[in-house]
Design a protein around this nucleic acid. Structure first.
Lengths: 343, 343
DNA sequence: TGGGCTACCCAAAGCGGTTTGGAAATGATT
DNA sequence: AATCATTTCCAAACCGCTTTGGGTAGCCCA
């Protein structure tokens, strides 16, 4: 059943039927009801392809996920972010388009998305320092919102981010307050913006309390369990091992825990640990009381809000860049305690 | 730059230009080259919306992911499957459409996808026993491929699945061969098809060796770390605890490990464990030698192949249902060893 | 009575491609 | 030289909607 059929069946023009269904004022209320009823009865659904062509809008948002041949890892945060964004899209009538591209092809992918008109806007994932995508997207004129920020980007842009610097500073201070002096940082890849900011927060806290930074206690890599494990091993097997860890993801934390347990060290007593927790649905940090003390911020909620921001930008062009900063909560769990006194 | 502009610029009709670009034979090779060159020079990209309307094809595949209000977990396997499927889609010129819907709205979502013509086909995720979606999709006439199977579905359908029954049978037999007699099964939700089959494999192995099934050693729930932990606690704190665990995901395995370590039990010596490993990119089972002995099957590869199957079905309608069974490898790691002799 | 509004509806022109059904030119065949 | 098939191109219809630019009828008011 298409518009034309419906119209002839009703003895009306397609114009009127279209207007009736889309709530335009220039149609009699009575007629509108007749049309609505008929549409429901024949369960008419306007053809999305035709609407898109006629209106010139794609009614779709693109998410480009890159798979590098080198570190071929899918951002573990991705699924939950998508789930959040998807909720917003359904509610506001947009489709979500996923594009999996090799990282070398990313610029081309954006240009095609624009020139072929498959999407109205884009969410930028996993920004890095001086991320070239921001300039690129400005240049090709595709509305976008960045999940995170990109230190050093020249042009202003819209973003939604967690206050990574502040939350890691607070977490580090919390550990210092507990008496810890040697605190290891097990961070993500430090060309990623979030990792840069977390490190800055950690360094700030150390500096504020007059504690030295020890390169031997600072790690940076792809955030996997095995990385957490091996970083912790290297840290713990030093002459002067850390009494606390500040780590960037639950998965890393799990790896650290493995290293600790291997050495007979008890978490929260012998060694303290604070992790960032994105509240991934398949990796809950305990049920009621958190297993790990954590800086917590829901990535799903971030998805919801970023999508909302983007659609707003698409629907009212010319909106000035908009930013939203989310604060992470510091949830005290079972993995932190006073620094052990040297025996 | 659109077709018409390009055509006038070349002094040709849009027909000829379109044909030249799409490789139709009825155009002079020389002309074709002129057209190709001009297209490249002005970097012309045909408008996707127009193509879709004109051809009646959506050139897009739908993935419906459901978020239940109850167990609001995003399938952890999802991201990697998507990454695999996405590779195939890019290669074959399809877009990937993600639809996040509340599980109650799933049937409606499928019908809309069909009637609005936004996709040409669908991948069905996380099938259950007697999954109603299979009949539904047949009824509305949307091509689909199921990732997994659905025990008890009446109509024939296309699927791609891991041989869960066989791999869990082999894993259980492996443990039995090592002398284990009390083997706990920590499974996923047992209305999910994969979990049903894994349980069947486990039960077959036990029966084949004349070992009794103990309901107190069989667990079923959403596959989270905390579930693994609490199931293991319950199992281990029994009068006659198991000496081995067979579990359905790495995340569960990690939870079990936590319970073991809490009790001072060493994995691979005091207690053995085999897990299924989907080779999720953010959760590698160790670098060179596996941390956990595991039945291993790449969900990313499954994504690639399922997408391939679906596109084939879309492009040649009337193809008989096609099935593909992947065999999981049994990778021996550090988490298994001979059953401890009772002391 | 006629002019001006308003309310309601319609025909037709897009949107940007693909595809059908020729037409003209060329070459081969008789 | 006439006929016929081939090659190469084109005009126009079409996909299914939205939207522009009227048109008509009814009402109000002078």
């Amino acid at each position: 059943m298409n518009l034309k059929e419906l119209a002839t069946r009703l003895g009306l023009s397609t114009t009127t039927v279209s207007r009736a269904l889309n709530g335009y004022p220039e149609v009699n209320e009575e007629t509108r009801e007749r049309v609505m009823a008929a549409a429901k009865r024949h369960n008419y659904r306007p053809n999305a392809r035709a609407i898109r062509l006629a209106t010139g809008r794609a009614m779709a948002i693109g998410h480009v996920i890159t798979v590098s041949s080198k570190h071929e890892i899918v951002n573990p945060v991705f699924a939950d972010f998508i789930a959040g964004a998807g909720e917003t899209y359904s509610r506001r009538g947009y489709d979500m388009l996923l594009s999996v591209v090799n990282d070398a092809d990313e610029p081309r992918a954006y240009r095609e998305l624009k020139s072929r008109g498959t999407v109205d806007g884009i969410i930028v994932h996993a920004p890095r320092a001086n991320d070239p995508r921001i300039h690129l997207l400005h240049e090709i004129g595709l509305p976008f919102v960045v999940h995170g920020r990109a230190t050093g980007a020249a042009d202003p842009y819209s973003w939604l981010d967690v206050n990574n610097r502040r939350s890691f500073r607070r977490a580090a201070e919390f550990l210092i307050d507990l008496g810890h002096r040697r605190i290891a940082l097990v961070n993500g890849l430090e060309f990623m913006d979030f990792a840069i900011r977390r490190r800055a927060g950690y360094e700030e806290a150390m500096a504020a309390r007059g504690l030295p930074l020890d390169p031997a206690l600072m790690f940076s890599d792809e955030m996997t369990e095995t990385y957490g494990y091996s970083a912790a091993c290297r840290a713990l097997d030093q002459a002067d091992p850390p009494t606390a860890f500040l780590v960037s993801s639950l998965i890393i934390a799990i790896g650290v825990r493995r290293a600790l347990e291997e050495r007979g060290l008890k978490l929260g007593r012998d060694v303290s640990l604070i992790t960032h927790d994105d509240e991934l649905s398949y990796l809950r940090n305990g049920e009621d009381i958190p297993i790990f003390t954590a800086t917590r911020s829901s990535v799903r909620e971030a998805g919801r809000q970023a999508a909302e921001m983007l659609i707003d930008r698409i629907q009212t062009p010319g909106l000035p860049p908009q930013q939203r900063m989310l604060e992470a909560e510091l949830m005290v769990g079972l993995s932190t305690g006073p620094a052990p006194t040297r025996g």
